[in-house]
């Protein structure tokens, strides 16, 4: 596992308590990509497994707006797109075998090694999500919140064009609303 410079080390116990696990988006034998929500500001974060040694599993954490989450679930954005189009910093967390969060660090994305950056070829595939109903319900709950929304019909003709190849998940969203927050 790569040695990282854990400057800007956070208070790990407090840090862990800030996040609420929502659902595993990619789960193959074990979670590989999990959606978390910040308990206090409601922001969404992807936790992506990126490495391990005999002591820790290492997770890459980066923000994902509701808008981008929708595009990811409709396979309009890759995981790489989510990563690079977000804030300039990301978080790396080493989790030990007692599930304690260790070595929490904030890093500039450009300083993250290529091996740790999400592949451009990773797109959402509903078969990877073993709790699709939970994911769908969560996304619906986001849409139900009162904020800036625009009808999906608008997006159909602009940003998001529906296609016959769109997965079932996307069709479930077709009658809902998509947040414009970015």
């Amino acid at each position: 596992m790569e040695s990282l410079s854990f400057k800007n080390r956070s208070n790990n116990i407090v840090f862990k308590q800030l996040f609420e696990r929502i659902v595993d988006i990619i789960h193959i034998e074990s979670p590989l990509l999990t959606l978390f929500k910040h308990k206090y500001n409601g922001e969404l974060y992807f936790f992506q497994w990126i490495d391990r040694d005999t002591t820790y599993n290492r997770w890459l954490v980066y923000s994902c707006s509701t808008y981008k989450l929708n595009l990811f679930l409709q396979r309009k954005l890759s995981l790489s797109d989510i990563f690079f189009r977000g804030t300039p910093n990301c978080i790396v967390i080493d989790i030990d075998r007692d599930w304690e969060w260790q070595n929490v660090a904030i890093l500039h994305k450009e300083k993250l090694s290529k091996a740790y950056q999400p592949s451009e070829n990773i797109f959402f595939d509903e078969i990877d999500c073993l709790a699709l109903d939970k994911l769908t319900d969560f996304v619906r709950s986001l849409h139900d919140k009162k904020s800036q929304y625009i009808p999906t019909n608008y997006l159909k003709s602009s940003v998001i064009s529906q296609s016959n190849s769109m997965p079932k998940y996307s069709k479930k969203l077709s009658n809902t609303y998509v947040s414009t927050s970015y």
Partner: peptide, 12 residues
């Protein structure tokens, strides 16, 4: 020899 992946002891 590796720690279990996941976030808590409910994970599989």
């Amino acid at each position: 020899k590796y720690p279990p992946m996941g976030f808590d002891k409910t994970d599989d």
